[in-house]
Design a binder for these strands. Sequence first.
DNA 1: ACTCATAATTATGGATTCAGAACCCGGATC
DNA 2: GATCCGGGTTCTGAATCCATAATTATGAGT
Lengths: 238, 238
Amino acid sequence: MSRPIAHRALYQEVADRLRRLIYDGDLPLGSWIDEQALTVEFGISRTPLREALKVLHAEGLVQLTPRRGCFVAGELAPGDLDELFPVMALLEGRCAYEAVKKATPVEVRRLEGIHARLEKLASKGDVATYYENNYAFHETIQELAANPWLSRIVSELRRFLKLLRGRQLRVPGRLEASLEEHRKIMGALRRGDAAAAERIMRAHLMSQRAALAVQERGPAPARAAPPAGGKGRRRAAR
Amino acid sequence: MSRPIAHRALYQEVADRLRRLIYDGDLPLGSWIDEQALTVEFGISRTPLREALKVLHAEGLVQLTPRRGCFVAGELAPGDLDELFPVMALLEGRCAYEAVKKATPVEVRRLEGIHARLEKLASKGDVATYYENNYAFHETIQELAANPWLSRIVSELRRFLKLLRGRQLRVPGRLEASLEEHRKIMGALRRGDAAAAERIMRAHLMSQRAALAVQERGPAPARAAPPAGGKGRRRAAR
DNA sequence: ACTCATAATTATGGATTCAGAACCCGGATC
DNA sequence: GATCCGGGTTCTGAATCCATAATTATGAGT
């Protein structure tokens, strides 16, 4: 947001670019990372690149095997989701709670804006943009909670959920259900009911998990190969 | 625990040593980290050291200011504790919940062993060893919960609490109160009451916070200088 | 033709080197 | 006397270099 003085270190820029490459699928999940290829692509030396990889490893986005190289984190297995979502529900629920407690009218209005956009996007059925704004909605609530520690771990875990790239929204009817849950959250926020906001947010996260479960055994995606995503699934977090 | 093949990378060993230096107070909170001095002390080059520092930065234990160097994280301010403990209570509460759900009789017995030791240590008034075992108690519950994601963020936040080095236990009467809370947790565990375990664990964490609050405005420590710990307090988490 | 041993190649981990920014200190100026 | 400027030194950030482990390719032997 501001960088008047003290430009960012190179390894951080590199880490950002690597994250984007992973999220955009340019570095497929589970794939080996060719350091040399990236140094020429980025026009840098291996030193900052390797530092960035250490950071990504600490974040859990890559796996770093001694003397074997660096691999992108693998796809999340259904078991992972069963363990991850309840924790995320707990945390985002708390975010909602603290956000309701602390939010000023101005901030509430900002959230209203995002929510209004979601309403519009849902009626248009624009899943991609809905995903983006939905992301912003949750991030804003996290921001309103204004708890650095909570924010820290929520962001950390969200990094893993981002690997799903909003798959759940593609489940038939999920978009509308998601929106309805958001409406209830906004309602709780407007009347300052922190406990309700927490409860609804938790349920919201858990129904995301449920939507994914439907999809897991659900119909084959329109195009794209069946889950033949490589042979070995790797765990993301150690 | 095991290193039959694939020895650890040097930067990880260095990171471990650095953490210990910080927790042991050999690197005072807020102090500047002299890279060159450490390279000669460790007998290594700057490369793995700097990689380790990147990791510690990702963990929040050090602050990395471009072109200015690396500083150990600062003391936690009271405001930090007010934000941190509720989150920790949430998470450890969830650990207790999942631990009760999943624990096998063998594992319960292991926890019983640790708890029995705590009883003994408390009656002897051995605060230092009590602290160690108390730590093991909480870590074991976290382990029994067997949720990698939960475990990940609990460990992450616990790193910050470790900076307090069990200060709260030195508050008069706190040792006994802590023990009593543990007894209740064990009770809930024995009768398989996950919800109760969660509730009690949350309260346990919050009463730790309260004990610290007493101490904050409490009597001056027996020895050791007043909070003249440098001029500038730095925040630990960004 | 297949397997196993061995040599060549490549990639990783770590050390060293180099450029430039920040700090320190002395001196000049107002 | 305080402040500002300049030169030297130190330290950070990044590039390059080197040793060694891992992988691949090669070839001998069955």
